[in-house]
Write a protein that binds this DNA or RNA. Sequence first.
DNA 1: TATCGACCTGAGACC
DNA 2: GTCAACAGGTCGATA
Length: 376
Amino acid sequence: MSYKFGKLAINKSELCLANVLQAGQSFRWIWDEKLNQYSTTMKIGQQEKYSVVILRQDEENEILEFVAVGDCGNQDALKTHLMKYFRLDVSLKHLFDNVWIPSDKAFAKLSPQGIRILAQEPWETLISFICSSNNNISRITRMCNSLCSNFGNLITTIDGVAYHSFPTSEELTSRATEAKLRELGFGYRAKYIIETARKLVKDKAEANITSDTTYLQSICKDAQYEDVREHLMSYNGVGPKVADCVCLMGLHMDGIVPVDVHVSRIAKRDYQISANKNHLKELRTKYNALPISRKKINPELDHIRLMLFKKWGSYAGWAQGVLFSKEIGGTSGSTTTGAIKKRKWDMIKETEAIVTKQMKLKVELSDLHIKEAKID
DNA sequence: TATCGACCTGAGACC
DNA sequence: GTCAACAGGTCGATA
């Protein structure tokens, strides 16, 4: 099927699809090897309904091509949406030249490789990163796709691949159970997902808000970062790392550095950051009034987050993204040029095939039950 | 309040 | 075919 793509001029050093869509920020973009294009479902602008969005990058002419399938209307609306999604208001070149290189020698050896932080939907970000604990990218991707195909709504089918919405908190609480999620391979995260969805439904009702997006955005209103993180950590399965990922990628808090084992290693090895007794004492005092933070936050890692913010400034989260890609390059399949190895379309098709088979089995089983009931 | 083991699963390294 | 001082954490029991 051929579509009429819109076009957006963008230098590859400012945006590299391979480096941002499959490098562990977002887990629902599918890469089609043959057509060299990416697709996913997303809500465009303020719309509540999902559309299938297809992207491809004409690297020679430095053009991003985009189309929303089934959405006959507004290419301009999609263009505006994508500019926000990719945060194209932020210039990586400017950050390198004027912010990071002057304050950090490590950046002088690097160049922008189109690695930027996405502005993702906060609910999807929350659930995706709950899935990320103790896990690897390919399995998180499979889990997110499994959530959509099992509990989301069918949007459309293109070339034999079914595209679904990401299930809302209500859809998850009404359609999924911990047992079902465990059956689908979520392991111990099954409980976290169900409990988080239930709490969000309750929180929204109390705030008289219907949309997951609107609710999670509302907790930032007139709130300090520490309070937003405290709120996010009130959900089961959400610790400081996951909360910080939601702040950075779902709630546009560009200065937040999620500290995991890799960032912690970078901080100690390359910046000799380590907390002394006074630092730790100060942080414990700081979180005295926040019961969840007091319980869940590791002061040593929090010290690293603060020191990196001090070093890199208000876009510290973006700087972390750049160094992180470089750090894990060798272990997560990136190439020497910094491009993250793309995952195969085949894998998604395989997931689809499994889901279709499961659905077929369910239909057969229910037919069998009907027959048995008739015999009875 | 600090520490530490348990938790699901499977890609990928190794033989 | 097997296996793990895995892998982008979090929770809860214990001392």
